[in-house]
């Protein structure tokens, strides 16, 4: 029964990784850049709810909506100010370094506003845990909400991409920006939309993460951000189903590693996964080989 509990915990953590990984993978797929500030958008999302619920006494659900809105505005602003002027840059390294700079900027901004100390985060899930098999397996309410959120997000995102015009525009821009423009697609607008979706999802992931592991600090987003990046690479960066599979697998590997191998080494195991993936199948589980266009 322990194993099943671990598995459920792993899938729950993995669902959060998957939601974060979506932001990485969509932005990579469409703007062809790694947005390393994505993890810190999670932190901003969680801090907004912390500010709303614990400091102002707002309704948790309202705070969540506020958090999503703020993260969307933040993500779109970051793209507009920091990344868009560099889109024609000769080296991709320039954008990558800028993203790391934005990440430090957000962390230090939170440090300035909220201080360095770790604070306890009040879960926004209003109901208690569910007990199965005479209490042998306890599933926390946060886990249930996380599963539901992940399912809803994956389904709606898939429908959005395959059934709507902006979704089709994303696929076209992901593949060939010039050809997409010749179809009458606003490429900059599509990239903005991608950042908006990714950042909104980051807010949700941040709140779920801090509800499940109820502490928060300015560095809350850094480690989950990097792990979600690994999940995106694991599943095949650029692929949305890849983000889901990569996220879930990574969550399970981390929790099982922590339970059966070593608590201290669980992060090492996760990073080893990245190294192994890069050695064995650099395109990830569902990744396609990028074809260089001539």
């Amino acid at each position: 029964m322990n194993f099943i509990s671990f598995l459920i915990n792993g899938l729950s953590l993995g669902s959060i990784y998957a939601i974060i990984a979506l932001g990485y993978t969509m932005v990579y797929g469409i703007a062809k850049m790694l947005n390393f500030a994505h993890g810190d958008v999670i932190m901003v999302g969680a801090f907004t709810v912390f500010w709303g619920v614990s400091m102002q006494g707002f309704d948790p659900f309202l705070s969540l909506l506020l958090s999503i809105t703020i993260c969307i505005i933040l993500g779109v602003t970051i793209e507009f100010i920091a990344y868009r002027p560099l889109r024609g840059a000769a080296s991709k390294l320039v954008v990558l370094i800028t993203a790391i700079g934005v990440s430090y900027f957000l962390q230090n901004l939170a440090l300035l506003i909220f201080g360095a100390s770790t604070k306890s985060f009040t879960s926004i899930v209003p109901f208690g845990p569910v007990r199965l098999f005479d209490g042998q397996i306890i599933i926390s309410s946060e886990t249930l909400v996380t599963f539901a959120a992940c399912l809803i997000i994956m389904t709606s995102l898939t429908l959005f991409i395959h059934k709507t015009k902006p979704g089709q525009a994303m696929l076209a821009v992901a593949e060939d920006k010039d050809a997409a423009q010749l179809m009458g697609i606003n490429v900059n607008g599509t990239i903005t939309l991608t950042f908006a979706i990714g950042s909104g999802l980051a807010a949700i992931a941040g709140v779920l993460l801090c509800s499940a592991y109820p502490v928060i600090s300015p560095y809350t987003g850094a480690m989950p951000g990097i792990k979600a990046f690994i999940a995106a690479v694991f599943g095949g960066i650029g692929s949305i189903p890849g983000a889901l599979i990569g996220g879930l697998l990574l969550g399970v590997i981390e929790i099982l590693g922590r339970a059966y191998i070593s608590t201290q080494l669980s992060d090492v195991i996760v990073f080893m996964v990245l190294i192994i993936v890069l050695l064995v199948k650099p395109t990830g589980l569902l990744g396609r080989k990028l074809q260089e266009k001539v």
């Binding site: 696929l171 076209a172 593949e175 060939d176 050809a179 010749l182």
Partner: peptide
């Protein structure tokens, strides 16, 4: 119609 066709190969 661009040079080299530029169809969206994965769609």
């Amino acid at each position: 119609v661009p040079e080299g066709r530029r169809v969206f190969a994965q769609l």
